[in-house]
Amino acid sequence: MNDLLEVRNLVKFFPIMGGIMKRKIGEVKAVNKISFNIKQGETVGLVGESGCGKSTVARLILRLIEPTAGEIFFQKQNILSLSSSEVRKMRRKMQMVFQDPYSTLEPRFTIYESLREPFIIQKENNINLRKEVYRLLKMVGLKPEHSDYYPYELSGGQKQRVAIARAFALNPELVILDEPTSSLDVSVQAQILNLLREMQSKLNLTYLFISHDLSIIKYFCNRIMVMYLGKLVEIASSDELFNNYFHPYTKALIFSIFVPDPDEKLEIVPLQGDVPSPINLPSGCVFHTRCEFADEICEKIEPKLKEINKGHPVACHHPLENK
């Protein structure tokens, strides 16, 4: 199958301005040279803790922010060379569902006005807007009556359904889901996950699913990328990652999952310490400050992503022996 999206050596540093002269005094190294690809029809999960650069990756792919360096190819086209009007055209094929449905809908617009927006922006003039909006609402399990509601009249789950309808309005090819369920209650979360899965099989979509919750990612995705402090540390198919992990950070994430079963008490061996600041990244392997296997090499030399098993690259000097 073809690569729908290819990211090469993507870098994003945010400058920190300060002092009386408001000069650059440092950099937040949010995304630090990452490369990956997503195939047509795949569901890829990107997992990591807050501040590791997950959302920055999403925003870079959509060109909502400009990268410091690197290349992004969407359907073989380098999207970083596009002009702003071309970017707008490209965005109809790439959409995003954000984390917080409470802030992504314009409070002064009715749902109809919000859902009509993509068609107006993309200059779809020859369609019956009302009819299209009703079709979208029906697709995500809402009723035509909801089109005259304002966002405050809807529950969190309903708002997220509207946000999903808006992202899917123009039949995109790639949808980036940035923590789409983390602000929802568990009973509603299941509804939204089912809806997303149904839409994928109906519309033949490719998903990039961003989350900090490994059990949702495992359930939802074919392939998982684990990110730590702006770096990808391990990429593997979901089953492979859980049965055959090599990176100590992946292990720590897997062992942080609390299984809802009182008989399966995990021997939790929590990671020591906190995530270091992305302003002063540790030297060498960024994980060495919290890693129990770290030695001198880890402090000095940065590990590169290397394929250990087929289709399973890991960035670690001392990959875990398997059980």
Binding site: V186, S187, Q189, A190, Q191, L193, N194, R197, L214, S215, I216, K218, Y219, F220, F242, I254, I257, V259, P260
Partner: peptide, 17 residues
């Protein structure tokens, strides 16, 4: 509530809601 949480060892594709 118990059946709508995704679990890591789950095989089925559709969650009960």
């Amino acid at each position: 509530l118990l059946s709508c949480v995704p679990r890591i060892n789950m095989k089925q594709k559709i969650l009960r809601t």
